[in-house]
Computed example of a mutant assay.
Amino acid sequence: MSSLPPTEATKPLTSALTTLNPRQRLENTLAQLAPTNAQIKNTDKDEREISAGELIEPIQRINEAMRPRGLEFELSEETSRVITRVIDRESGDVIRQIPTEEVLKIAERLEAMQGQIISLEA
């Protein structure tokens, strides 16, 4: 199979690629693919906060589908965090919970302390 000679349009591209080492080519490619700050700001505007109320119905549907497999999901009212539990299907005992009760208590205390720190600085 014979190679075609480079056209006038591809000569600069070919010569530029051959002069760059593999690391430089990778960096150039990544720089071209990386989003600009303006693009990032625009995606932030498109996203919106989802309220806890909007999550209740989807979590209920997921629970209906996953409960037979031993998984259960709950939305914590205090922290609005999703709690996942692995349940023993025969006994109903909790095998594992993510995040654990201890982690949830620590998070509550940290949030309370954060409010105190802010009020002390003011």
Results as ranks from 00 to 15, higher is better:
Lys41Tyr: 07
Ile117Tyr: 02
Arg109Pro: 01
Ile106Gly: 02
Ile106Val: 15
Lys45Ala: 09
Ser80Asp: 10
Glu8Ile: 12
Pro99Thr: 05
Glu64Ile: 01
Glu90Asn: 15
Leu33Pro: 02
Val82Tyr: 03
Asn28Gln: 14
Glu121Arg: 15
Arg61Asp: 04
Ala38Thr: 15
Thr14Asn: 14
Met113Thr: 12
Glu57Met: 01
Asn42Tyr: 08
Gly70Met: 01
Glu57Arg: 01
Thr7Gln: 08
Pro58Asn: 05
Arg109Lys: 13
Ser51Val: 05
Thr14Glu: 15
Arg67Phe: 00
Glu47Ser: 10
Leu26Met: 12
Glu101Pro: 03
Gln116Asp: 10
Leu30Ala: 10
Ser91Asn: 06
Lys105Met: 08
Leu30Phe: 09
Glu64Val: 01
Arg25Gly: 01
Gln32Lys: 13
Thr100Gly: 15
Pro12Arg: 06
Arg81Trp: 04
Val103Pro: 03
Glu74Ser: 11
Glu108Met: 08
Ile40Trp: 01
Arg67Thr: 00
Glu77Asp: 15
Ser3Tyr: 15
Glu27His: 14
Ile40Tyr: 03
Arg69Thr: 00
Gln114Val: 15
Gly115Asp: 10
Arg25His: 03
Glu57Asp: 10
Thr19Asn: 12
Glu54Gly: 00
Pro99Trp: 01
Arg81Phe: 06
Thr100Phe: 03
Glu64Asn: 06
Glu90Gln: 12
Arg69Ala: 00
Leu20Ala: 12
Asn28Phe: 14
Gly115Ser: 12
Asp46Leu: 12
Arg67Gln: 00
Ser51Met: 11
Glu72Lys: 08
Pro58Ile: 00
Ser91Gln: 07
Arg89Phe: 03
Pro35Cys: 05
Lys41Thr: 11
Pro35Met: 03
Leu104Ile: 15
Pro6Leu: 08
Ile117Ser: 07
Ser2Asp: 08
Gly115Gln: 14
Ala31Leu: 13
Ile40Met: 05
Gly53Pro: 02
Lys105Leu: 14
Val94Phe: 07
Ala38Phe: 03
Ala31Tyr: 06
Ile98Asn: 13
Met113Phe: 09
Arg25Val: 03
Thr43Phe: 02
Ser91Ile: 04
Asn63Leu: 04
Gln114His: 08
Ile56Tyr: 00
Thr84Val: 07
Glu90Ser: 10
Gln60Val: 01
Leu104Ala: 11
Gln60Lys: 09
Ser119Trp: 02
Glu72Asn: 02
Pro58Ala: 01
Arg96Pro: 02
